[in-house]
């Protein structure tokens, strides 16, 4: 599992990457009440806001971690947004994408780096 400074987690399965939000992010968001997911087949660029997660408190955008194509989305999480609070790093995965350049994955944060990032940013 790899992480981003935007509090996403990514898991690699061959040339596919599964993406969700971290436990820290789920906790910070509070009760999630609405999730909007991208369309399968959609081409995305790194930094595009492709998922919207709304909690009782506020709306947050989730960005594409790298250039590529969306191949699958988790319809269950759109139907039951609270899944993000219950199991953010498991059942509440958000989308799967194919990366244009798989090497981008290696540049992401390791578990250890992400925990250090949380500590450094006072979280």
């Amino acid at each position: 599992m790899k992480y981003t400074e935007e509090h996403e987690w990514l898991r690699q399965d061959g040339d596919l990457f599964t993406v969700g939000v971290t436990e820290y992010a789920a906790e910070a968001l509070g009760d999630v009440v609405f999730v909007e997911l991208p369309e399968p087949g959609q081409d995305v660029s790194k930094g595009d806001e492709i998922v919207v997660v709304e909690s009782v408190k506020a709306a947050s955008g989730i960005e594409a971690p790298f250039d590529g194509e969306i191949v699958d989305i988790n319809a269950e999480v759109a139907d039951n947004p609270a899944l993000i609070n219950d199991d953010p790093q498991g059942a509440a995965w958000l989308f799967r994408m194919k990366a244009k350049d798989g090497a981008a994955f290696d540049a992401l944060l390791s578990e250890e780096d992400y925990q250090a990032f949380l500590r450094e940013s006072g979280r």
């Binding site: 009440v33 408190k57 609070n85």
Partner: peptide, 10 residues
């Protein structure tokens, strides 16, 4: 506090 341990909905 915005919310306590249980969260806004509860």
């Amino acid at each position: 506090p915005i919310h306590y341990a249980t969260g806004v909905i509860k």
